[in-house]
Design a protein around this nucleic acid. Structure first.
Lengths: 219, 219
DNA sequence: AGAGAATTCAAACAAACGTTTAATTGAGTT
DNA sequence: AACTCAATTAAACGTTTGTTTGAATTCTCT
């Protein structure tokens, strides 16, 4: 039924196309990109099986659309937050770490979906082991990496360029891993670790990584 | 009727079976567990297509064999190293971190294969997003987690149980992520970061994580 | 209302997958 | 030499996958 077609004639994005994007993201978060079939997607989106190929061309292009829609805004927000930091004040290192992490937490909390789903999908993008995914994600990442390395080395002059690059990688890994698995911590710890909210996870991540960033081997 | 029977004679492991295990590990490291077909495995192992089902029962059991053969010894070595640590001396925190990381580095360097392949496979096991894999890996992990949490809290009494659990998770994430992606750092950094050996990566990991472990929020 | 583009639909496609089957080999035992 | 049984082989099985097709339907605009 034509209800929401009041606006935007030329730049029209079909309701079905948006539904496919939305459902795909939710299913990809749960089971990964490969495990989710087009049949499962189109059934959940109440669309025809051929809808994905019609609107996106192929499953691969659907995945690309989901990934880029997800990581693009996050990286832009990271750069925006980084620009706002006064690198001269003490605590600037923690601000850098927050500029990297908070865009993900914000996006997760802002979403109409549950936080978990978003975190899992984001984690699958950041730390994917699939070359087809990483090539999509890493396309935007060189700029982010370079800017954060520069900022980090301004705040911590004793860190070499190589070490700075590695530490950014450590940060990404710690974040991606814990974003994906933090809800399992209760089980793995056999009840010894209580459920932690996403916000408390964020706080601990910032503390841990900030301390790691400030580490001085030569000291 | 061929039956994939449990090894009544424990010493008898066929040459074909060992070749399948070896080739599977190498291929799984490159492309992941799902993407590698039994046909590709058996061709590379110069065995018949039915060989996997004959010797292991199913592909799933082959994966389980590969995973357990890989992560089992590493976890045992972790616990052994942890027991040897004198938790009273200064620098004990770094020793704990080393006890977690070094077994992986040792196994990678000891292998007859290239380091990269081993690291990628190990990383796929540790930080897998596939429930079927994580359930295998995490079976042994509660003991490791509990022991490392206890040791960490002895050395850093100001850390709560919840925070200790999270920091172990951060450590695993930083390690797994960098083990898998460190060889890509040259490309992502657009040449600004030189190739780093596995040993130098290990040293920086230890420095970074040790500092993170020692972080004191209340300070 | 009617022409034309855009979308949806059911059906079929070829390819790849893990698994199973039945026949065959080959060394060790009686 | 006949028998045994684990191991290997070629071939086929039934599913599932992404993709394509052509007709039917719905929407847009004059």
């Amino acid at each position: 039924m034509p209800i929401a077609q009041r606006e935007s004639i030329s730049a029209s994005v079909t309701a079905t196309k948006m539904r496919l994007l939305d459902v795909s993201g939710r299913l990809f978060a749960e089971s990964g990109f490969d495990s989710v079939s087009l049949r499962l997607i189109t059934e959940n989106a109440e669309a025809n099986l051929a809808a994905v190929n019609y609107h996106f061309g192929s499953k691969e292009e659907l995945i690309a659309a989901v990934v880029e829609k997800l990581v693009g805004p996050v990286n832009q927000r990271r750069l925006a937050l980084l620009r706002q930091i006064n690198l001269d004040v003490s605590g600037a290192c923690q601000s850098i770490v927050e500029a990297f992490i908070d865009p993900v937490i914000e996006a997760a909390s802002r979403g109409d979906e549950e936080d978990q789903k978003f975190c899992k999908l984001m984690s699958r993008c950041i730390a994917s082991r699939d070359e087809r995914i990483t090539s999509l994600v890493l396309r935007q990442f060189p700029e982010v990496l370079a800017k954060f390395v520069d900022a980090l080395r301004l705040v911590c002059p004793w860190i070499s360029s190589d070490v700075a690059h590695m530490r950014i990688m450590f940060m990404a890994g710690a974040m991606a891993h814990s974003l994906f698995h933090y809800d399992k911590l209760v089980i793995i710890s056999e009840g010894r670790c209580e459920i932690s909210s996403l916000d408390s996870l964020r706080d601990e991540l910032v503390q841990f990584i900030s301390a790691g960033m400030l580490a001085d081997t030569s000291k």
